[in-house]
Design a protein around this nucleic acid. Structure first.
Lengths: 181, 181
DNA sequence: AAAATAATGTCACAAACTGACATCGAGATT
DNA sequence: AATCTCGATGTCAGTTTGTGACATTATTTT
């Protein structure tokens, strides 16, 4: 196992056990069997160890959008369906996603980082939509879609019995059915 | 002048002159004529010195919403008008707002903090709307409204000739006129 | 196997933050 | 006026995060 992965595993363990603020990078490195310096070569800072920089979800949603341009012509609906299409990402590893989410909710620094990641998600979706739609409309739809995604995520956490896609569509319908919005 | 204000003024000066990352808390404190320790008693961290914790805008938007409940019954439109109603906040001190925005855009840490502040804005607006609307619909409308506000802010920065309220309404109309969203 | 390249270690240090305790100053109490 | 009180500030010592420079050790290439 690469040291990067070892560090991620070690960090997750310690954050769960002692909380984010109470575990030092020193400890994470020790548990992973490397030095502190190596940690900071793999991750730009302490919080970074919890975040996937590859924007997998952004790519998947963008790919979905690009694929379905011909069948669906409303940008928001298209983007929302894009998010619904990555539901396996969540449903498959509910435990892990939940644990990670709890750690993040426990600390403002981590929440901030999560928020910043959401901006790159917006960008990906905006870019994908921009191929066929006006750029400002694309951005607006992308932003709305990400907010819908976020609310769906929270609902998904609260109710273990429903799938992720289901929650995404539920929030979208809350919007669509509400003529009075 | 209280030391808190002195620190804010000193920080603004230094951030403009040398950039955020290149100025130390030490320097800010010196310029303000106090010690580093005092800085950290007034602000929870370095970035905090740039942010108003009082959520003035949130309160104003919420107040507007509460006031206008009878005349307007679409939550999103109501919230958007709330944001348009605080336009003086921006138009009056364009220079300062612009300078601050530039500093923030220059550094990821600051962007993160700004994003976190946006969450408390969402909360304020959600709460105000919740008095008359379903709570989930309120949150969704609040989130959409804040996104509209954000896009309007960016446009406002780019075009010095147009007022803030004007930009807010322009983005809202982009949404409303777009049957195809 | 030798050479090149990448990953890790070592060390020294700056900067951000915190806790504990001392001091100062202005306003209230006597 | 002298004293008392309390909140703001200073002092200091220490932890933690994060970085640059250079040495050492794996790994891969030739």
């Amino acid at each position: 196992m690469k040291s990067k992965e070892k560090l991620q595993v070690a960090a997750a363990k310690l954050f769960m056990k002692k909380g984010y603020e109470n575990t030092t990078v020193q400890e994470i490195a020790s548990l992973a069997g490397v030095t502190e310096r190596t940690f900071f070569r793999q991750f730009k800072d302490k919080s970074d160890v919890l975040f996937d920089t590859s924007n997998t979800m952004g790519h998947r949603v963008a790919a979905f959008i690009t694929d379905k341009f011909d069948v669906e012509q409303k940008p928001l609906k298209l983007a929302v369906e894009g998010f619904a299409s990555v539901s396996d990402y969540f449903d498959v590893s509910r435990e892990q996603v939940l644990a990670r989410s709890q750690i993040i909710q426990s600390n403002p620094d981590l929440q901030e980082r999560e928020l910043l990641k959401r901006q790159v998600l917006i960008e990906s979706v905006t870019n994908a939509l921009s191929v066929k739609f006006d750029s400002e409309l694309s951005e607006l739809a992308a932003r709305f879609a990400v907010e819908i995604f976020h609310m769906a995520f929270r609902k998904w956490i609260e109710s273990p019995e429903k799938g992720f896609a289901e929650q995404v569509l539920a929030v979208y319908e809350l919007y669509e059915n509400s003529v009075t919005i």
